[in-house]
Simulated scan of single mutants.
Amino acid sequence: MADFTLARGTTAHAELEISRSRFLGYARRIDSEAAARAFFSEIRGEFPDARHHCTALTVRAGVNPIERSSDDGEPSGTAGMPMLAALRGSGLIDTALVVVRYFGGIKLGTGGLVRAYTDAALATLQAARVVELKAIPAWELTVDAADAGRLHAGFEGHGITVADVVYGSDPQRPAEALFTLTHPDEDAFAAQLAALTLGEGKPRRISDRIVEVAQ
């Protein structure tokens, strides 16, 4: 099953005006509840004079995700839960969502609040840059430092991604370079590596790397 979330380093934003109240929505990718709380505090700090800062989050934690929501002073169940429902419906993981409300003087009623916070949440999530998280096979390869530049160019020219390269990682072998390489096809990787290293490359399989694929 594919995993989707917001692109790292981005913040989605949308703004709605409903019956003279302003609803400002913000969403961001998170890795923990602590990161979500920091994000919520950041937004609260930007809009300290707003009446409500309602929140929802989902973050992976084993088999079942951790989910939280807050109405922040709105009638119970009219803000945080509708936002969380929108978040669930989006299929996104590891996402925090906050909707700031500036009260416009007109009461919306329970049903009106549910619709308003749902619409604000959906608009914010629709504005997000979504990526798919994919696990890509990865390897480590040690080579002579003198060959590293040539091989680096060769790897990238043949579709092998250089995730990292460290020179002198082993104090006992300072004249070596350690590459971390990824490629979606293990058989193709083996063939290309053999050609580039004249059969001398001895890669070591390591844990898959998680990469972002734009949608």
Results as ranks from 00 to 15, higher is better:
M81Q: 14
M83Q: 15
R60V: 02
S70Y: 01
P82E: 05
G73R: 06
L87R: 06
L84Y: 04
H52I: 12
G80Y: 03
R68I: 03
R88F: 13
L57H: 06
R60A: 12
V63A: 15
A56E: 00
T78D: 07
S90R: 12
T58S: 15
V63T: 15
H53P: 00
G89D: 15
T78F: 05
V59W: 00
S76L: 13
R51W: 07
P75K: 05
G73V: 04
T78N: 06
T55V: 04
P75D: 10
I66P: 04
A85R: 06
S69I: 00
S90T: 11
A61L: 09
S90F: 10
G80P: 00
E74A: 14
V63P: 03
T58C: 13
L84M: 14
P75G: 07
M81S: 09
P82C: 04
P75W: 05
D71F: 10
H52C: 12
H52K: 13
D72L: 01
C54G: 08
T58Y: 04
S76N: 14
A86Y: 02
E74F: 13
V63Q: 15
N64I: 05
A79C: 12
H53I: 00
D72K: 01
R60N: 06
T58A: 14
A86Q: 04
N64K: 13
R88E: 13
N64E: 15
S76F: 12
G62D: 05
S90I: 08
S69K: 01
A61I: 00
R51Q: 15
L84T: 07
E74Q: 13
I66S: 11
L57C: 11
G77R: 05
T58N: 10
G77D: 10
P65G: 11
C54T: 09
A61Y: 09
T55A: 12
V63R: 15
H52A: 11
S70M: 01
